[in-house]
Nucleic acid binder design. Structure first.
Length: 363
DNA sequence: TTCCTGCGCC
DNA sequence: GGCGCAGGAA
């Protein structure tokens, strides 16, 4: 097993990155501000999102909510609607909560240090370090996927980066490497270096300024590092959506906690252990909701639409059903279902699965 | 199709 | 340690 770094922190590492960065950096809007609110917005959006996908969302959020007060005052549905399509919707709910917390408990001013930032909901070690260094020049090293990869390769760290326990070694190393005089520039540089030069699959080792010092390159281990254990296989769930329609309305409900897509809207859901659900069963399910199915108005269900999440695969069939009469109020109270017109549905926050169904079915 | 990336909460 | 989302690359 190769030996990791055991000597004093090398000066060549920061020097090489700080030389590389201004020549290769992408021009991104959040790199032109030191406003902690804007930096926080960008970091929360970029937490599990690539720059290319997150950029339009960042521009939308800073335009729609120029200040933390604007974001705090917005209804949750509206914030989720703006977040729609980014995934990991708890990020949006936490972000909204934190905006309200900053307004109410911090007088509208973001906390001014790494340790204070850590107290905010949705702000973990990475985001706190990013904001503290970018906005306040605090000397605290960021540790994200890029940094793990760069450090593992350059210094030959073989710990499993998916295991929380291995975080210590990386953090310790990063903390020794970050220079006191340019912490923000260093953090930007190492992450950008990982994103552009030291990429996961095909790093540009040929033109890499760290080629001579890089442990992985010198030992032919670039493809082996970083070490990362694989996630366990996702389970499959079978969703039968009852798209209950009456007159010009469709019934939807806001999803509750402890399951995927919390806070987003979907249709009446009948989940089964298998993909099967006979047409006659649809009528029974609707009647169990107190609905009266209009004669001959049960359409063939859609083909199964597959949707993959982090730890689940969803196979969903949509059954459009026209009702003779509106659902009884007792059912609405019990299920959370409510009738919406097409224009209202457009405004509700929805998962990509539901959004795709609606656009393909022409509601 | 399959694989992979990406941070924080519980 | 388990789990949450979507999209792009292989």
């Amino acid at each position: 097993m190769p030996s990791p770094l055991t000597t004093a922190p090398p000066s060549w590492f920061a020097a090489a990155l700080l030389n590389w960065y201004p020549r290769h950096r992408r021009d991104l809007p959040w790199r032109h501000t030191r406003d902690p609110y804007a930096i926080w917005l960008s970091e929360v959006i970029l937490q599990q999102t690539r720059v290319k996908q997150g950029l339009p969302y960042y521009l939308d959020f800073v335009t729609t909510y120029p200040t933390v007060q604007d974001l705090a005052a917005a209804p949750q549905d509206e914030v989720l609607r703006h977040w729609q399509g980014l995934g990991y919707y708890s990020r949006a709910r936490n972000m909204h909560h934190t905006a309200q917390q900053v307004v109410q408990e911090y007088g509208g001013q973001f906390p001014g240090s790494y340790h204070e930032l850590l107290k905010l909901r949705g702000v973990g070690q990475y985001t706190a370090a990013a904001i503290a260094s970018f906005a306040y020049d605090e000397q605290v090293a960021v540790l994200d996927g890029n940094v793990f990869r760069v450090l593992a390769r350059v210094f030959g760290l073989t710990q499993d980066i998916a295991a929380p326990a291995s975080r210590k070694a990386f953090q310790q190393l990063a903390d020794t490497l970050i220079p006191a005089d340019q912490p923000a520039e260093f953090n930007q540089a190492i992450m950008e270096f990982g994103a552009i030069q030291c990429t996961p699959a095909k790093p540009d080792c040929l033109f890499c300024p760290l080629q001579q010092q890089c442990f992985a390159f010198q030992h032919g281990m670039v493809q082996e590092l970083p070490v990362k254990s694989k996630a366990k296989a996702a389970r499959t769930r079978y969703f039968h959506y009852l798209v209950l329609r009456h007159a010009d309305t469709v019934y939807l409900r806001k999803r509750g906690p402890k399951d995927i897509w919390e806070g987003l809207y979907d249709f009446a859901l009948h989940e089964t252990e298998s993909a099967e659900l006979q047409a006659v069963a649809v009528v029974e399910v609707v009647e169990s909701l107190g609905g009266r199915v209009a004669t001959d108005r049960v359409e063939e269900p859609t083909a199964a639409l597959r949707h993959v999440l982090s730890h689940q695969k969803v196979e969903a069939k949509f059954h459009a059903v026209w009702l003779e009469t509106p659902l009884p109020t007792a059912t609405l109270a019990a299920t959370g279902l409510a009738a919406y017109r097409a224009a209202e549905i457009e405004e509700l926050p929805k998962s990509i699965l539901i959004t795709n169904y609606i656009s393909n079915s022409g509601i």
